[in-house]
């Protein structure tokens, strides 16, 4: 079974403001670490550790913060999206319920 996408799922907005912000949060650490010439120098040193090394170590922490921010943004949006499913009218429920419909079949097969 399966194959084609449910028609209303395509109508769902894929690009939303919080997703864009999450994407930026994820892109920043990648760009920063790949831009090697921006940090390939010895000074300023930190407690005797050359810039090259402590700067990259600092990015471990900064990157974790950005990733956590992306996580919060995406999860908040996913929760907000799930909530209206049960209350909103049939058209919307149909789109979001596409997975649910398959799930029912799945349950039947598994029982």
């Amino acid at each position: 079974m399966s194959v084609s996408d449910p028609p209303s799922a395509a109508g769902r907005r894929v690009i939303t403001p919080s997703r864009v912000v999450a994407g930026v949060c994820l892109a920043i650490p990648v760009v920063a670490t790949l831009w090697v010439s921006s940090y390939a120098r010895a000074t300023p040193a930190f407690i005797g550790i050359p810039f090259f090394y402590w700067y990259q170590m600092a990015w471990v922490i900064v990157s974790a913060v950005f990733t956590a921010a992306a996580y919060v943004l995406v999860r908040r949006e996913e929760r907000a999206r799930r909530r209206p499913v049960s209350t909103v009218g049939p058209t919307n429920a149909e789109g979001d319920g596409a997975g649910g419909a398959d799930g029912l079949n799945g349950q039947g097969g598994g029982a």
């Binding site: 399966s2 194959v3 996408d5 449910p6 799922a9 596409a98 997975g99 649910g100 398959d102 799930g103 079949n105 799945g106 349950q107 097969g109 598994g110």
Partner: peptide, 21 residues
């Protein structure tokens, strides 16, 4: 080739049961 997955499969969470085929 045949694609056995649907678009909704990629965002399914733990509360969506497994398909049994």
């Amino acid at each position: 080739g045949k694609d056995e997955t649907t678009r909704a499969d990629y965002t399914a969470d733990a509360d969506t049961p497994r398909l049994h085929k």
